[in-house]
Amino acid sequence: EEEDEILFVTDVHTMNKDLFLQKRPLNVYLKYIKDKKRLYQLNHHRLPSVFQDEDKDDQSLTHRFVLSCKKTELRYVQLLQAINYEDFAHPSTIMKSNPQSGYDIYFINLSKKMIFHLYDDRGCDILASNKESIRFLYEEYNNWILDYNREEIDLLFT
């Protein structure tokens, strides 16, 4: 809904020694937030890599950017298109000036207690605190469920 409270979260996965994010601001927020003054409320956290194996001395880390906003403050259609084109040579590519870093973008709907994560042109993850709130997705788009997820998801909803 238009007035739902949303956390717009971007995780950028990079190496500890990579100074890219210290030199340039994250392009995704400049392009896809309508009111640039909102950028002053952007939170940044440096975290151990979310992919880090505890047994390895991994030098990677995750930069997490979080902005609290409303749907109307985002250019979300353009952002979702850019995520879909990320694996292709396209002008909307989000990390085109830092291709060695990976990223994940999440929309956390605090009002509905749901998380939406479009990972690329092949699909998305949708999570909810209450499975009944997304049952309609399971029923309407069941044929979109990937085979390797189907058994687990079917058990959840049946």
Rank of each mutant, 00 (worst) to 15 (best):
Y40W: 08
P25N: 14
T158C: 03
D35G: 09
T158K: 06
I6M: 04
L47D: 02
Y148K: 10
I108V: 11
K34S: 13
K17P: 02
N143V: 12
K131I: 12
Q59A: 05
A128V: 07
M114G: 01
K31L: 02
E5K: 08
D57F: 00
L80G: 08
I153Y: 15
N143W: 00
S97G: 05
G102N: 05
E139I: 14
Q78E: 14
F157C: 14
H117D: 00
Y106N: 03
L42V: 10
Y32T: 14
P91Q: 01
N43F: 08
Y76S: 09
Q81N: 10
H44F: 05
E3A: 07
H90N: 07
V9R: 08
L79H: 04
H13P: 13
L79R: 04
I108T: 02
C69D: 05
Y29P: 01
L7P: 12
F20L: 13
V77A: 05
E54S: 06
E3Y: 10
V28N: 13
P48N: 03
Y85V: 09
C69Q: 07
K56Q: 09
R64K: 10
I105S: 05
K34W: 05
Y119Q: 09
E1H: 15
L156D: 01
L79M: 11
C124R: 03
V28Y: 00
M95F: 06
I33Y: 00
V28L: 08
E139F: 08
E86N: 09
Y76E: 11
E139R: 15
E73K: 12
P91M: 04
K131D: 12
K96G: 03
L39F: 12
L42W: 04
K17D: 14
K131G: 13
D154R: 01
E151N: 10
V9Y: 08
E1A: 15
C124E: 13
L42M: 12
Y148H: 07
K96N: 06
H45L: 05
C124G: 04
